[in-house]
Design a binder for these strands. Structure first.
Length: 210
DNA sequence: ACATTAAGTGATT
DNA sequence: AATCACTTAATGT
């Protein structure tokens, strides 16, 4: 456990880290496993130690729309608001890679908020950070054309995975952006013609600075 | 060799 | 930008 906590050591004071360590537990999640689903009550606050988690929401047609990814030291802003009002989850979180996370019991959230200023500012920061990200995706959906959304999506994907190779089918991308496969295929083809990427089966190679 | 799944494309709304 | 219908290409058995 000590090794995974290294990244958090810079964030919090030693006394808090000690309490954090003793009252929370590390969970390992395999790639593809669900962490939380719609309608479930939230019992723990996760902080990602390593891996990558995808957070999605269902639209009215039952299609899944990508909200954001969670990487190391990040936490899910939605769970904060959900658990404070003792509501059920509005989102689904699935591990995209093998993931380890720190599970913090909900009850301790309030307690720590008043007790530790570093914890409070951590919560503030992640809530604000994700809120801003959400605002960005919202006006991408509202005002941007789909081709720009697609480019932004590919970029984010490659940054988060640290590779210019993206192993996704057109169908999977279409699902995430809540559109149809045909549209994605056409847009990708256009991008390929502009020499911005290369297309293979189940794989896309991003070129240069996109 | 055949079936299955992914990707490409024209036409229509 | 979505959907349909169809073709072509890649992959698995």
């Amino acid at each position: 456990m000590e090794t995974e906590l290294v990244e958090l050591k810079n964030l919090f004071e030693p006394s808090f880290l000690e309490e954090l360590e003793s009252k929370s537990k590390v969970m390992s999640i395999k790639a593809g496993d669900k962490i939380i689903d719609y309608g479930k009550t939230i019992r723990v606050i996760p902080i990602i130690l390593k891996g990558l988690v995808k957070v999605t929401r269902m639209d009215d047609e039952g299609r899944e729309l990508l909200l954001y990814y969670l990487g190391p030291t990040e936490s899910c802003a939605m769970t904060f608001s959900c658990c404070m009002m003792i509501k059920t989850s509005e989102v689904r979180a699935v591990a995209e890679e093998d993931t380890e996370l720190l599970a913090i019991p909900v009850m301790l959230l309030d307690e720590w908020m008043v007790k530790y200023s570093t914890w409070k500012s951590f919560i503030m920061k992640t809530v604000m950070g994700k809120f801003n990200e959400l605002l960005k995706t919202i006006d991408m959906i509202a005002f941007q054309k789909l081709d720009e959304r697609l480019v932004a999506y590919l970029k984010e994907k490659s940054e988060k995975t640290g590779s210019s190779l993206i192993n996704l089918s057109h169908q999977q991308i279409a699902d995430e952006l809540a559109t149809s496969r045909v549209v994605i295929s056409r847009l990708l083809k256009k991008l390929e013609n502009d020499n911005r990427l290369l297309l293979y089966r189940n794989q896309i190679k991003l070129l240069r600075d996109m």
